[in-house]
Design a binder for these strands. Structure first.
Lengths: 204, 204, 204, 204
DNA sequence: CATGAATGAGAATTCATTCAT
DNA sequence: TATGAATGAATTCTCATTCAT
């Protein structure tokens, strides 16, 4: 009918898209991919099932984008830190702890990192996501090595280990019942671990 | 009276159980729990669906056992190393590298560690599995701190980080296409990372 | 905005629910719970298997409702009769014969009363159903005893016996082939039996 | 091999047959047809699944015989009572109460009477069984009418009602929680009900 | 002749995707 | 264009019956 789509309409559409992504994110965070059925996502976004397919061609592509958005957000923050001021040591600690704090608040991102994908398409996206996060730490490692703060080492392996280390420590701390560590202690402990791991001289 | 069960028959039965476990393991390693349907497992084991239920009461219990067996094997080996001779530093490196080498040969175990479980029962088993692996490293950390090899630190967090670090590095190395690191380099790199991470004095 | 759901659509939905109940009822009446598989019910209702689950969360709940609806209908009618005018004797006969006539028309209800349930949930509903029917007769027995029409007796046992007596007589008349009794004779015979059973003075 | 089957062997076979029937009966009594799987019956009889099929060609035929045996036993006892001394009134009460007492001891028989069959073949047997029990009461009704103890009435309907009445009262008494009637009271109450129902002059 | 492992059809239930309205 | 009811294939699990040993 209307030849030109009104601006209002376009905003509406953008809103819907955003709402779907948000709903999907929330559902995955709550109970994993298993809980995030298409119907549930659509309903939580205030839309019908059919409407969702107007914005995303399939469930897989929706979740690829969910993951992508989460990671883009994360990478943006971590990238800012990595490109900021201070020594590589300081920036590495800041990055690790920044990630850790956000993950502890809403653990969906960390969860998404290790959750088994429902689909090969999502799996591919997951690899890319991890790589992107890893790249931030690779840069920091390079900086530190260049400045002489860290000894020479494989930055590829190091970055992967860092991502794995904090992911694991955040999602499934060993000994979950005994001695419940406070959030501050946990974040700091992870930071210490990673700094020592890359050979930085850390506290004492 | 009752026909004596032939030795052949007994072997057959034991074989079937083993074949089921093997098939399940292989399918999970290949494509995750999603790919490992009961029908697929049974078929790959050369049995009918119903026959599988003679050996395992449910899909969940089958996979709990798959995981349990893998971890028991792993813990046994790592435990031997941890209780062996040499400094904590040496034993820690040996444990990490031993795990890493096996994981690179047949990556299913590492995969099982991070795969999203299909079932709460399996999830519980997974947590226990990670904790058991973690405990080995906790012991090594304690040893090293006691001997003065490692600085004082949280052994809970450290153990979790170590497990996470090598799991991640093994399963999804950052930058998987470019500069394919040799296996030796990767294993050594992970070892270095972990030793530095705990504060050991590592070569150079 | 949202398309207004047409009246036609709403009728369609209500129809579907009704059709499912009807199909379930018919299948149970024909061949018991065994014959009433979810697939068969859905198919007889002109729907797919999955569609049925939009209207009923499980097979058990569907059959609980089938039973419940039948009994609610029955209890309403019998209750009206029991609370009506006339002596307890008259009302008891009217209630028994009313039930009997309906049961002979569509024997599913009587069948449902004695069918072995496929599920504990349904079994529970069945007990409640029988109790509800029994309660109507308990009230009538009490009335009759109070008015002196019936001798003193256990109203619990009496009510159970009455329900059992007409259920049996309706569903499986002894000697089903020989001397096929007319419906009128059967209904009257059951009425006579029950009245005598409670000690009422019955014609001749 | 052996041309003539030894007597011992024949006894053995007869024993097995009997044991199977007994096991089947016990399982049905415990938890209905649902619980009585072929494997369970065979196991409880101390035999293998396959061996059972040497004695019964199918599950259905096994349960037809289980029912038949139970009823034959019942009919024999009730027949003795019915053909015994005393007035029809006395014999009817004795028969009803005798049945009731046995049913209360081991309720499997009463259960089998109303349980939904797993199979049309068993259903047919069930009808025959009920008819056979009914026939005993038909004879008693005829006796009583002939002797002038009972008024003229349909013996077919009356017999069916009696069977239904005590079956129901025994298996599912209305109001099962409140006022738990003693066994004696229940048996007597059922007897009273049935005697009054046929028009006998009963106590007071 | 006895065994019991194996079969395989069938049951209930779920869910991504489509399409008439 | 939005809706959500309908689809139907796929999943886990059961069990009467068979047959190699």
């Amino acid at each position: 009918m209307a030849y030109k789509r009104s601006t209002l309409m376009q905003e509406r559409l953008a809103d819907n898209r955003e709402r779907i992504l948000k709903a999907a994110r929330a559902l995955v965070a709550e109970g994993g991919f298993r809980q995030a059925s298409v119907t549930a996502v659509a309903h939580n976004a205030g839309l019908s099932t059919g409407a969702l397919y107007r914005y995303f061609p399939s469930k897989a592509e929706l979740f690829v984008e969910v993951l992508g958005a989460a990671v883009a957000h994360e990478v943006a923050i971590l990238g800012d830190i990595a490109r900021g001021d201070g020594s590589a040591t300081q920036r590495l600690r800041a990055a690790v702890e920044s990630f850790a704090r956000r993950a502890l608040q809403g653990p969906y991102l960390a969860y998404a990192f290790i959750a088994e994908p429902a689909d090969p398409e999502v799996e591919a996206a997951r690899l890319i996501a991890r790589a992107q996060i890893g790249d931030v730490f690779k840069k920091l490692l390079k900086d530190g090595i260049a400045s002489g703060e860290f000894p020479k080492q494989s930055v590829d392996i190091g970055a992967a280990c860092i991502v794995g280390a904090f992911t694991e420590a955040l999602v499934r701390p060993v000994a979950p019942t005994a001695k419940r560590v406070t959030e501050d202690k946990l974040v700091e402990g992870i930071g210490d671990f990673c700094l020592r791991a890359v050979g930085a001289r850390v506290g004492g």
